[in-house]
């Protein structure tokens, strides 16, 4: 038996919005400590890892781990019916055949109840190693979104490197080339700040198409963290308040 209630249902809406173009079908794991999801695309280029901790919910009860196989397009259709200020409750029983979604307006004047049929999915899981990266950048999520949007007009691959002073994004295409430097700012507890920490330089290339899809998570967080090392997958993390995160991993492009 699972029951999870989030007064700020808006957060769940944003989570689903940021996943739906990347994930077709996925197993959410409902566990006593929270809700998790791991999903890779069929070409194994990207991986999404989601965590929503139990204590971030207003009410959370889950006695044992329940895999909940979901078609994201279907879930997306249903959750679109929740207003931004609705509370959302998820409810599933142990047989894993359906998931109930209950949307309550703040004045409790309207209560909507949907039942989503679940799927029995055989999902590929990988062990995510505890990586230590050479470069860590924290920057405003809207700036990353803008970089992706602007550079996508020029080419398909983005090259990323960092110095102490700035993180640099470069692209080359048939029409020419472009680059954007995002400069680090002084003491960065401010949300709009940019911080760069570097153990050694890294120069990495990635598909702009996938990086752009990750930025669908921008409404979830004012800041985003990028971590990368030479010839390794990059980690792009959007924190979800104090309750968890969405992490995206993107396999690099390497010289042929």
């Amino acid at each position: 038996m699972l029951e999870a209630r989030l007064a700020q249902g808006n957060v769940l809406k944003k989570v689903i919005d940021s996943l739906r173009d990347l994930v077709n079908e996925a197993n959410f794991e409902f566990t006593p400590s929270g809700i998790t999801l791991q999903s890779m695309d069929s070409a194994h280029v990207i991986l999404v890892s989601l965590l929503l901790r139990a204590d971030g919910f207003d009410n959370y009860r889950c006695d044992r781990t329940i895999p909940v196989g979901i078609n994201m397009a279907s879930l997306s259709k249903i959750i679109r019916a929740a207003a931004n200020d609705d509370a959302i409750t998820l409810r599933a029983d142990d047989n894993g055949e359906s998931l109930n979604l209950i949307f309550e307006a703040p004045n409790a004047g309207r209560v909507s109840d949907y039942e989503l049929k679940l799927m029995d999915l055989d999902v590929e899981q990988v062990a995510l190693p505890d990586m230590s990266y050479d470069v860590t950048v924290r920057m405003p999520s809207e700036e990353l979104q803008r970089v992706c949007r602007d550079l996508s007009a020029v080419g398909e691959s983005v090259t990323i490197n960092a110095t102490k002073e700035s993180i640099n994004f470069g692209v080359k295409g048939e029409l020419g080339s472009g680059s954007i430097a995002i400069r680090s700012t002084a003491p960065v507890d401010k949300k709009e700040g940019v911080s760069i920490s570097m153990r050694q330089p890294a120069d990495v290339s990635f598909s702009l198409k996938f990086l752009t899809q990750f930025t669908k998570a921008t409404p979830l967080s004012e800041t985003v963290r990028l971590e990368f090392s030479n010839e390794c997958p990059m980690l792009v993390e959007y924190p979800i308040g104090d309750m968890g995160y969405i992490r995206f991993y993107l396999a690099p492009k390497v010289d042929d």
Partner: peptide
């Protein structure tokens, strides 16, 4: 030109 790698070469299957 650049070649897209796969995550499976970095992350092992359990």
């Amino acid at each position: 030109s650049k070649r897209q790698t796969s995550l499976l070469s970095f992350f092992p299957s359990p």
